[in-house]
């Protein structure tokens, strides 16, 4: 059976230089993939390439074996939902309207969309925010609303670009746990992260890690792979030390003096 999503030999150039360099990945239904890499390694471009938001200089994107470019916008929205790195609108919009708008593909009456939006907000722990303006929300509240828009869209695969950026440690953990919960219910997820420790909040046994460096895939394997440390070194270009505390695993990059 064809993969849910497939990126085949994708290259994206910016100013003649590759920001994604001959990258191929396949995402199976129900899978959780973490894309890790340093800033500027191509994580955002990879996600946008899968969504069809950037033009490929070479390569293709396929959804269940069909070319993405041949699919209508609503069909695409039924397969992929996106949580971008940048925050949502700065316009004064009601939270319930923002979430209801993510159900555009359903062609349903507004009352139905609003009802679904309220259910999604409750699931994301933001039921009390429905009648607030998004411009009045804190970072954590906004993130809950963003997750509610993903829930409301009811797409089969979630693509999240640095979903924990600008959040405090508690909300970073909650966001990743929420995502892990959705994957356990059958949602496919592909999440870009630069902080590898956030993966401590997801089920390691079902999480595949793809490491990007300078637009190329330099390592991939399961999160609980015994060579994960070497993988981090290949991804970031410096050795990582493994530490353990209270049953949790931590990876710290070697300090400058170790590197000299």
């Amino acid at each position: 059976m064809a993969a849910l999503l497939a990126l085949n030999n994708a290259t994206v150039l910016a100013g003649g230089l590759p920001i994604l360099d001959d990258v191929s990945i396949e995402v199976a239904e129900g899978e959780m993939i973490a894309i890790i890499g340093a800033n500027g390694s191509g994580k955002t471009t990879l996600i946008k390439a899968l969504l069809g938001l950037v033009s490929l200089d070479s390569g293709t994107v396929q959804v269940e074996g069909k070319q993405l470019s041949s699919m209508g916008a609503k069909h695409r929205a039924s397969v992929m939902a996106w949580l971008p790195q940048e925050g949502s609108t700065t316009d004064a919009l009601l939270v319930e309207d923002v979430v209801a708008a993510s159900r555009y593909r359903f062609d349903e009456p507004r009352a139905v969309a609003l009802e679904a939006a309220h259910i999604a907000l409750a699931e994301a722990g933001a039921g009390d925010l429905a009648r607030r303006y998004v411009t009045e929300l804190s970072g954590g509240e906004r993130q809950r609303v963003e997750l509610a828009t993903m829930v409301a869209q009811q797409a089969r695969c979630w693509l999240l670009d640095e979903p924990a950026n600008h959040l405090d440690p508690v909300w970073r953990a909650r966001t990743l746990r929420f995502l892990d919960g959705k994957v356990s219910e059958g949602t496919t997820a592909l999440v870009a992260l630069h902080d590898v420790h956030l993966l401590g909040h997801v089920d390691a046994s079902r999480t595949r890690v793809i490491g990007l460096r300078e637009g190329k895939i330099v390592w991939q394997g399961q999160l609980d792979h015994d060579q994960f440390g070497q993988g981090l070194e290949q991804i970031h270009g410096v050795p990582f030390h493994r530490m353990e505390s209270a049953g949790n695993e931590f990876w710290l990059p070697a300090m400058e003096e170790d590197l000299s």
Binding site: L51, L53, A77, S78, P84, S88, L93, A101, Y104
Partner: peptide, 21 residues
Amino acid sequence: IRPLEVLVSGTERARTRGVEV
């Protein structure tokens, strides 16, 4: 108005939510 309700949150978001921008 209906597609604009989605577009008001951003062009790229609207594209991923099913709007033929």
